[in-house]
Every structure is written in structure tokens, then in C-alpha cells.
């Protein structure tokens, strides 16, 4: 079946950090996101904790409920099981790491309830 995952999750994809440095997607570290957000005028990093993982509308989809930021706002996203999230201190993680590795050659851990993912929000929001 076709996979509509963005191309930048493919192993070897070149990612530009906010300071201009280029890294491969598989080499990104938690600090790269934190430092990039620090010098961004618009974006800031939030910690989004995985609260629930449920089946999605289609067989290959899951609905992930996050508790976002200090306000613990509840946000649900529906993604394909192979969609990788970046877990603080751990790196790329997906609901089906075998499939992520198979499709994108990107090494992944299993995304679990309680994992804290890197997410973004707007700096200007008050």
C-alpha cells in the first residue's frame, strides 16, 4: 500500500538546523531540536507526553493522545503506525518501529504511553 509519509524521514535525509548546520535525520539529537528552537524567533519546544494510543480509522493508523506543555492541553493526532516521533533523550520512536525501519531504514524505538515527545508551538501564543 502507498505510504504518504514525508520524505525527510528516510535515512540519509539532510536536515538543516536553525544555525545552518546540516545533519542526517538519523543523527539528530535532542539538543539539536532544543538549540534550534532557542534561536528561532517563532517556534518553541514543548514537551508532549503520550497519554493514550488507540486504533485509527484505517488499519495502518493510530490515534495518539498527547498531553502538551505545562498546561497539559490534550491534543489528538491520527498518524500512520510507522510515523516517527522524537522522544526526549531517546530519539526516533514509532508505534511500529519494525515498519518504520523497513520503509525508511530509520532505526526506531517503540513509542509507548508515558514517552515525552518533542513538539513545537508558537512563541507568540499567550
Amino acid at each position: 500500500s502507498p505510504v504518504a509519509l514525508p520524505p525527510f524521514f528516510m535515512r540519509g535525509s539532510i536536515i538543516q538546523l536553525a544555525d545552518g548546520e546540516l545533519k542526517r535525520v538519523e543523527d539528530l539529537k535532542t539538543e539539536d531540536f532544543i538549540q534550534s528552537a532557542e534561536i528561532s524567533s517563532e517556534l518553541k519546544i514543548d514537551s508532549s507526553t503520550v497519554e493514550r494510543i488507540d486504533s485509527g480509522q484505517s488499519p495502518n493508523a493510530v490515534v495518539i493522545q498527547f498531553s502538551v506543555g505545562e498546561l497539559k492541553a490534550q491534543v489528538c493526532v491520527e498518524v500512520l503506525v510507522e510515523y516517527p516521533f522524537f522522544v526526549f533523550g531517546q530519539g526516533w520512536s514509532s508505534c511500529c518501529p519494525d515498519r518504520t525501519t523497513q520503509l525508511f531504514e530509520l532505526s526506531c524505538a517503540k513509542l509507548c504511553v508515558g514517552d515525552v515527545c518533542v513538539s513545537l508551538t508558537l512563541r507568540g501564543l499567550r
Binding site: P7, F9, Q16, D32, F85, S119
Partner: peptide, 19 residues
């Protein structure tokens, strides 16, 4: 070779906020 911005890789999870 395409170069992708760092912020494409992590989700934008904006909590609904009221002013």
C-alpha cells in the same frame, strides 16, 4: 540533494488557547 528544515520533523501541537 533536498535539504529539509529541522522544524518539519517534529509535530506542531498547538493547544487551543483562548485570549
Amino acid at each position: 540533494v533536498p535539504v529539509f528544515p529541522w522544524h518539519s520533523l517534529v509535530p506542531f501541537l498547538a493547544p487551543t488557547q483562548s485570549d
